[in-house]
Design a protein around this nucleic acid. Sequence first.
RNA 1: GCCCUUGUAGCUCAGCUGGUAGAGCAAUUGAUUUGUAAUCAAUAGGUCCGCGGUUCGAAUCCGUGCGGGGGCACCA
Length: 637
Amino acid sequence: MPNITLPDGNVLTFDKKVTGLKVAEKISKSLSKQALVISINGQLKDLNYEIDKDCSIKIFTSKDKEGIETIRHDTAHILAMAVQELFPGTQVTIGPVIENGFYYDFARKDSFTQEDLLKIEKKMQEIVERDEPTHREVWERDKAIEHFKKAGEIYKAEIIKSIPKGEEVSLYFHGKWHDLCRGPHLLSTGKVGKFFKLTKVAGAYWRGDSNNEMLQRIYGTSWSSQKDLDDYLKRIEEAEKRDHRKLGKEMDLFHFREESPGSVFWHEKGWNLFQKLISYMRQKQDEAGYKEINTPEILDRSLWEKSGHWEKFGANMYTSTTPDEKVFAIKPMNCPGCVQVFNQGLKSYRDLPLKMSEFGKVHRYEPSGALHGLLRVRAFTQDDAHIFCTEDQITEECLSVTNLILEIYKDLGFENVILKYSDRPDLRVGDDDVWDKSEKALLEAIKESKLEYSINKGEGAFYGPKIEFVLRDAIGRDWQCGTLQVDLNLPGRLGASFVDKDGSKKVPVMLHRALFGSLERFIGILIENYAGKLPFWISPLQAMVIPVSDDFNTYAIEVNKKLKKSGITSEVDLKNHNLNYKIREHSLTKIPLLLICGKKEVDSNTVTIRRLDSKEQENMEIKKLIEKFSSQAKSPS
RNA sequence: GCCCUUGUAGCUCAGCUGGUAGAGCAAUUGAUUUGUAAUCAAUAGGUCCGCGGUUCGAAUCCGUGCGGGGGCACCA
């Protein structure tokens, strides 16, 4: 006699056990048609699960996250079914739901080709049409292991072995085909609909461990309507258009080449952008009380041994042997160098907090497969700083770093910032009471900042807890940029000390912080966020002066000179092309202002402005133009 | 690093099953003097990523190295 409580509080009473589908039918016919999956006392179950006890339920449709995720999960099963029908002998492993889709990992000798993907997709459509009914069975563990072993499904057998004792081992059947699965699933393969697409094949390690063999992963996406699928594919396409590698080429900002994989060759315009960011940052840091320093790129091996890098970070370090056989390392981090500057001369507690910033270029030998445009490189410039302070100053200093980061992100158009807080890892140095103190101090700073934060348990650095600053861009992607770490280890290892009030020598606390993280990376993010249409003040080329014909060249040259003098980055285009051509060309390279000069303008001492992405024409006196845009050309302060 | 995929002119790409390369744009030169997203013509431009092999003959097939792309692993 189950009494079933609905989300609106109403209670339906049945005189015998009843399936979720039947409950949906009782509620409304349309719901029963749209129903995909049900939650019973908060646990997701199949719609044909039989309810025999009092409970509260909620029925999900494709409008709910639970519904669409079940569709994706079923699509993954159908993918596996299709693959095994087409390629007998292929072993199935796991096939979870991911953001916007799903994947399934297979073990097969031959590799899947792009054409195979199409074939598989077709077969999947067939399976949907066959509308194979789903049913679930709970098996005895050893029987299940035996069964899958016999069937040649070694990986599945492995998975069952790793299911904790006491947990149910359930199998899902779609027609004859079956898979070990926790569920829930749709009532039949037909419920999935046909709004899916296989997107790519890739390698993936068994159980995510690079010591294991590599499986073949097929990725796909699945939706509840053609429109949703099309929208998704469109979104992907739009994101591709923003790719900073593509835009960087089109806008003539930088390039990469074989001779130095993962290192940027900055072109004039890219470097201009780079320098604009640095000078903006200098000003900000100067105001915040930082002292800029610079330390050597190459330092003796002994220093890196002392700091612990040689042992802990050696695999990522470039080294250099001189003709006289001395071994140096090219710095992968700026901190040891910075501590040397701190160590020079006696420091007093009165000098603290001492904030030393450095635009330091570091080199790290990253695995070749990790390289990705500007976002993952082997040589990059950190907007680094190290703050030497006392333990009592930690919270305040952390807070001021957080504020500085937020201010800077805001100036660059990122208002949506999330924090990730990582606390002590298992492998760490320092006493627990010191950790208590530094974690508490850092957490306090986060709380005071009133920002949303998540906790990554045990993900801190070996020397201290850290915050990572994640910003969300214009199309909803998250990027990890800034970082702030509390270090109670390196200063001691490298012999840093200050004279305290009582005359005794003490070891200072060191905060490591980077605002953008890496200038290279941040520029990549900026390009993608703005789809190349950078804010005026940071645009590497802010204005192009275009004479209508060469009768007006002298005037255009004059205008360009005036602009340059007033601090606007501008050029004049004297090439023998017509106006249409020039407008197209310079619009494509995303120059914010096109300034047209013809007879009308010469006569009235004006230019006609055409802004990027606008067809409007605005006539303006030169004096006013300079007044208006020279202030906009400056970085925000 | 691992799996898959890819490498042809400055750029974007074509070149079927082997017979030593082609287009558009860009560049150069000339004509045109242009009023808001491609004016016309001519010229020049290539170690077909490198190395090795198969073959009478390789951009094309095979091996290998390097680079790019998509993932996985990595990301102090």
